[in-house]
Each structure stands twice: as structure tokens, then as C-alpha cells.
Simulated assay, not measured.
Amino acid sequence: MPNSNRYTYMFVALMALVSALLLSLVKTGLHERQEFNRELDMKKNIMMAAGAYRDGMSGQEVADAFKRGFAIKRLSGAGRENVPAYYVYGEEPAPEAVILPVDGKGLWSTIKGFIALESDLNTVRGIAFYEHAETPGLGGEIDKEYFTRRFQGKKIFREGQLVSVTIAKGEMLEESDYGVDGISGASLTTAGINRFLRADLERFTPLLQGRAQQQEQR
């Protein structure tokens, strides 16, 4: 009887060890897959902002197109260690677009996105929002094409000064170079975007002004 109990305990312990090992392997595999999908989604959104994404592209096509057409850059210089990477679309020294990461607090969640600027570094080429948990049908509409395309052609500088692009309710904003008509019922979400969009653009102002001066000199 004692031997029987000992074997039972050993069997249970062995099964628990095997189960823990299998769960650990599954978790590791899922984590790697989740990270891969997260990175792929980020690349897709960068391409969407730059106007380089085509509906129906497979994950492999996105990865290949990103590798061919986009380059990752970082600001250099003292005091800029916390500035994230940015991206260029096209060949240096005159790429088609510069894509900047933007993120901040919305109503319920942190909103992440990318804003792409034309070669003049003033005109918005496109914008994409992702990784948010805003209210479906209200603030959650920020990632829909009908809203993001309102940013296209808007300006972020006025007479050399950064003014960003402001989201507010009012059709007249569509006639403004610096305003975008908002989403009904999503004023708190869009107010958050207004805050962090301007703040993130300000972080990259030295880059934008420096590149613009280089273009003028060529």
C-alpha cells in the first residue's frame, strides 16, 4: 500500500511537471506569434498612412513591401534619447514621405497611430490609428477610412510655426487647411488626439524643419 501511494504521488508530480512544461512552450509560442502579428500590423498601418497599402495584401506581401520601400530612422543629438523611431518611404535624400509615430490617451485607452507627411514636410499624406479601445460606433470610428481621409492635404505648419491639425465639429473645418471635421459623440476621444498629435509633432519639429531646409538648398 505505501509503495502504491508513492507511485501515485510520483505519477501526479510527473504529470504536473509535463503539463507545466507544455503550457510554458505553448505560451512562448503564442507570445512570439503575437509579437510577429503586432509588428506586422504596425507595418501595415505605416503603409496605410503613407498610401502604400493595397486592400487584400497578405501578411507576406506587407512584410516584403515594407522591407523594399521603407527605412527606419532615429533622431540624433543630445536630449533626444526618448524620441521614438520614425520612418521614410522612398529613397533618400528625397523620400516620398516621412512617417511619424503618434500616441496618447483617448477617452478609454491609449491610442497609437502614424501620420505621414508629403515631401514638403508640411502637407499630410495620410494618417492611421490602431491599438485603441475607444467606444465602438463613437470614438472607435477613428480608425475608419471615412475619418482618416479627412486629414489628407491638411497642413501642420503656418508661416513656419507648427499648428498641427485640429479635430472639431463643424463642416466649415473642411475648408480649412488646419482643421478636420470630427465624429459625432466622440468629442473626448478626438480631444485626446488633438493633444497628443500636436505634442508628438512638436517632438519632431527639429527633424521636419531640418529636412525642409535641406530640400530648399538642393
Results as ranks from 00 to 15, higher is better:
198 R>S: 08
207 L>P: 00
99 I>V: 14
98 V>F: 12
106 G>E: 03
142 I>E: 02
115 I>F: 10
112 K>P: 04
100 L>K: 04
146 Y>R: 09
149 R>H: 10
164 S>W: 08
189 T>R: 00
213 Q>P: 02
186 A>R: 02
100 L>V: 11
197 L>W: 13
131 E>N: 14
96 E>W: 14
167 I>W: 07
139 G>E: 10
142 I>Q: 00
209 Q>C: 02
132 H>K: 08
194 N>T: 09
194 N>Y: 07
163 V>A: 06
91 E>G: 08
125 R>M: 08
150 R>L: 02
142 I>R: 00
205 T>R: 04
127 I>H: 03
197 L>Q: 08
138 L>V: 09
96 E>F: 14
129 F>T: 01
138 L>I: 11
120 D>N: 08
131 E>F: 15
180 V>I: 13
173 L>A: 07
149 R>Y: 11
185 G>L: 09
193 I>D: 04
184 S>A: 12
140 G>F: 10
162 L>I: 07
93 P>N: 04
166 T>W: 09
113 G>H: 02
109 S>L: 05
136 P>N: 07
109 S>E: 05
150 R>Q: 06
125 R>N: 04
162 L>E: 02
108 W>C: 00
152 Q>W: 14
101 P>L: 01
131 E>G: 11
180 V>P: 03
149 R>F: 11
121 L>D: 01
162 L>F: 11
166 T>L: 03
198 R>P: 00
212 A>K: 13
198 R>C: 00
212 A>Q: 11
92 E>V: 12
178 Y>W: 07
151 F>K: 00
111 I>Y: 03
150 R>G: 02
